[in-house]
């Protein structure tokens, strides 16, 4: 399978709003559709049904003075739509990996969703793709909670260190912030792509002491 023209999508006219395709993934019932609806239309439906196929909404969001149009794809988790994943995932700019904090299985499956996304969306640089890990349903009581925030952070550290945020679509906690965070993370990585040599090259002008201190830190980190 040939590589899709992933980076080519971003060569847009600067005057127009940047259009970003955002895919929300995660086990059925973790609240993907609720998250999207809360973000786009700020309402919450206690008894929403399973998503059929895919749901899709647009919303403009302003980050650091620039307006982005988010094209949010809320894919169905069911098996019978699996064959359609490829066109849906492809060309995504941002992927939200969602789990419910009261559902350990959904958290365990994050790795599966991540791998599946990388495979079907044909993303080569999995470590640098802008994922966002979202733990939904933080409104549940602490007894019902099965996944702690620390645990989720630890998983993120091991998997390319994507940003992590805990939300509640029910009481609107952090929903707006989650999407903003995702776009910021995309913009950050995009800036790196535009200047591919920065970060990978050695800056000779950089002062010695700084290098040494960073060395010490990393050694310290390793021994722990």
């Amino acid at each position: 399978m040939a590589a899709p023209n992933f980076q080519g999508r971003h060569m847009r006219q600067p005057s127009k709003n940047t259009l970003l395709k955002v895919v929300i993934l995660g086990d059925g019932g973790v609240g993907k559709s609720c998250l999207m609806n809360r973000f786009v239309s700020n309402h919450f439906d206690e008894h929403s049904f399973h998503t059929i196929g895919v749901e899709f909404l647009n919303k403009d969001i302003e980050i650091n003075g620039e307006v982005y149009t988010l094209q949010i794809w809320d894919t169905a988790g069911q098996e019978r739509f699996k064959s359609l994943r490829t066109p849906f995932y492809r060309g995504s700019d941002i992927c939200l990996l969602t789990y419910a904090v009261d559902d350990r299985t959904s958290f365990r499956n994050l790795a599966l969703w991540r791998n599946e996304f990388l495979y079907y969306a044909d993303v080569k640089e999995g470590m640098t793709f802008p994922f966002l890990v979202v733990g939904n349903k933080v409104d549940v009581s602490s007894e019902q909670r099965e996944v702690s925030c620390e645990e989720a952070r630890a998983w993120c550290m091991e998997n390319g260190n994507p940003p992590h945020v805990e939300t509640s679509a029910k009481d609107a906690t952090n929903v707006e912030q989650a999407f903003s965070l995702a776009v910021e993370s995309w913009a950050h990585l995009e800036a790196k792509l535009d200047r591919p040599y920065i970060g990978d090259t050695v800056d000779l002008r950089r002062q010695q002491p700084e290098q040494r201190s960073s060395c010490c830190l990393s050694v310290g980190g390793n021994t722990e």
Partner: peptide, 10 residues
């Protein structure tokens, strides 16, 4: 390019 840029029709 294999991408879906519009939501599907049911």
């Amino acid at each position: 390019e294999g991408m879906s840029n519009r939501p599907p029709i049911q």
